[in-house]
């Protein structure tokens, strides 16, 4: 698909996606009835991705530590490495990396699952049985990712900071104690943000929004898939592509809101 047709698709479908989200939110009262499906979705879309998130998070922390550490040691400031790694993981890296991984894994599988249902008449079958597909299919997935995305982000932050520490102590001659102290210091609570350090709160708020974006977009693409396996392929691609784009945009906007006070 060319750039312009992708862009057109993005614009044309935004209304549809927004109304899917609204319609799903209206079904929130049914969330308790759906606890089993939500738990299933949390496992298959979230928990199963834990190893990937941990792996990527670890390396991301190591990279940040190494890259900034080299520069900082030139000006003799390598003591600050803990702060830099912790803050950048909590604010940006953790939420964004987790969201990107989830878009590629959970998002594509949502789009493919619902897309397959759509092209094989299963959605039509639900419709003729007067079964609400938003309550059955969309609500559990949106709730599951809205919960799992922040949870995985916490793991990603944690292991990233750990990885940064490994590099700091082994390659940058920053002691483990010093590293962890500066890292923890930078994340001390500074306000009434639900008892969380501000940066952690900001990161979690972002990842909560990202989880909703990824699940809603992927559901919307899956539901509108048409035309056999080819259509499922299109839906999956559009879901991942547009999720990542929207996550980046939302990331900027939330950062702007939170840090520009």
């Amino acid at each position: 698909m060319s750039f312009s047709s992708s862009a057109t698709h993005f614009v044309q479908t935004s209304g549809e996606r927004a109304s899917l989200l609204l319609a799903t939110l209206r079904r929130l009262p049914a969330v308790f009835e759906r606890r089993r499906l939500i738990a299933d979705a949390m496992c298959s879309l979230g928990l199963n991705m834990t190893p990937v998130v941990l792996f990527v998070g670890l390396f991301m922390g190591m990279i940040v530590s190494l890259q900034t550490g080299i520069e900082l040691s030139r000006i003799g400031q390598q003591d600050q490495i803990g702060l830099i790694v912790a803050v950048s993981m909590a604010r940006e890296m953790g939420p964004f990396i987790t969201a990107t991984i989830l878009a590629a894994t959970a998002g594509s599988s949502i789009a493919a699952e619902l897309g397959t249902m759509s092209v094989s008449d299963e959605l039509a079958a639900l419709e003729v049985m007067s079964i609400d597909k938003l309550r059955l299919l969309v609500l559990p997935r949106v709730v599951a990712l809205a919960i799992m995305c922040p949870m995985l982000t916490v793991l990603c932050d944690g292991i990233g900071i750990l990885g940064g520490g490994l590099v700091a102590s082994s390659q940058l001659n920053v002691g483990w104690d010093l590293y962890s102290e500066t890292a923890m210091d930078s994340l001390r609570p500074v306000g009434g943000w639900f008892g969380l350090p501000f940066d952690v709160f900001a990161g979690l708020l972002k990842s909560f929004v990202f989880g909703i974006i990824i699940s809603t977009l992927s559901c919307a693409e899956g539901l509108r898939a048409k035309g056999g396996a080819l259509g499922v392929g299109h839906a999956t691609r559009a879901a991942v592509r547009d999720s990542i784009i929207l996550v980046i945009i939302a990331n900027y906007m939330i950062s702007q809101m939170l840090y520009d006070l």
Partner: peptide, 27 residues
């Protein structure tokens, strides 16, 4: 109304029994 789809259109992630039970469970 009941509708028998040409190719079954069973919900692929539900067991056979739950497929048949689905309309009663949901409605």
């Amino acid at each position: 109304m009941g509708y028998v789809f040409q190719d079954g259109a069973l919900i692929n992630w539900l067991s056979i029994g739950e497929n048949v039970a689905l309309p009663l469970r949901e409605n």
